[in-house]
Design a protein around this nucleic acid. Structure first.
Lengths: 181, 181
DNA sequence: TATGACATGTAATCTGTTACATGATTAG
DNA sequence: CTAATCATGTAACAGATTACATGTCATA
């Protein structure tokens, strides 16, 4: 079947367009000016990514006529695209998701409420909480072994990761409480 | 001059080899078994990266003879490589370093003590503290604007980033105190 | 009329992923 | 003998970066 996995830039685009149809230029502005600076705003990344999404049938672009400005192509998420986005968001959180930074999980969560609904947001948080628990256990075990041999900077760097994960767990619980109200 | 920037995988290799000369296989084991899982342990990533480092004169590989096992190439950091590593570690922390995750900064810090010295570790922490202060101010301003318009999940996701940065700042100050002792 | 923001794209190049290939040595 | 582990590599492909190219429209 050879179904290569979709890079997170494409999911970020899908999520944004689900919120509001936009042109490539619009998206670039969003990426460069808001807290989504982690994603590339270069035309060489955005335009080909939009093409790929269109080729796969997840979005459809229509050229906007009339408004006087140069041709502007507005992209809208198709029903197939919505399904893909929902599927991505509602997957349980794996250990792998945590190893490679919370970045992607947070993006999924940020889109979850609008794209799927409150229950999905809560479900994602619960899944994150569980995964994080296991992940933290592993980290603590590794830390015990490491702290005897590593130099101070190595130990502290590891502790930073540990604290980060603990903080994330606290945030997760806080977020769950926020939804309970 | 066209001096393309070195990817962090290569710095990770440089730092590891600075600590202890090793073969490509050794490094793969380290990446796959320790907390450095974020870096790829695939041969298609490691071996070409070692080649590039060697081509640039940062490391030198020597084939280990005798030990009965199959040929094993051990890589050692050259003085040019050491200089490059120190240079990378001692650069001040920029806003950009923070936007793209603390990953790289932490790697620099983890290597700092052994590769440069305690003063360098402290200097890096101080630089991080200062950068983080400014970064946090920006985040808080953005948060005020966002929290009026975003849905709950969007607001919470942003708060997660905010808390993460605050936690990192606290860790930085704790680390500075650790060195003061 | 010249500048800058709007708007879209391509080409060269680099790095990483996936999957495959090779061969030596050791343990069962 | 055969399976696992050690050890190194290559080839095809995907995606991102950088830099360049193109052209429109508003405004100073």
């Amino acid at each position: 079947m050879k179904q290569h996995k979709i890079p997170s830039l494409e999911y970020a685009l899908l999520g944004l367009l689900q919120g509001k149809p936009a042109s490539g230029y619009d998206v670039r502005k969003i990426f460069s000016s808001t807290s989504m600076k982690t994603y590339s705003d270069s035309p060489g990344a955005i335009y080909p990514a939009l093409r790929r999404l269109e080729r796969r049938g997840f979005i459809r672009g229509t050229i906007e006529e009339g408004a006087g400005l140069r041709r502007r192509q507005i992209f809208r998420v198709t029903s197939k695209g919505t399904a893909e986005l929902r599927n991505w968001i509602t997957h349980p959180v794996t250990a792998d998701d945590l190893v490679h930074g919370q970045q992607d999980v947070m993006l999924r969560f940020a889109f979850s409420e609008y794209a799927v609904g409150r229950e999905a947001s809560v479900a994602l948080l619960k899944s994150l909480e569980e995964s994080l628990g296991r992940y933290l256990q592993g980290l603590r075990t590794e830390f015990e072994a490491l702290k005897k041999v590593a130099p101070l900077s190595g130990r502290l760097a590891f502790e930073c990761g540990l604290r980060g994960a603990e903080g994330l767990l606290e945030w997760t619980q806080y977020a769950i409480r926020s939804y309970a109200k």
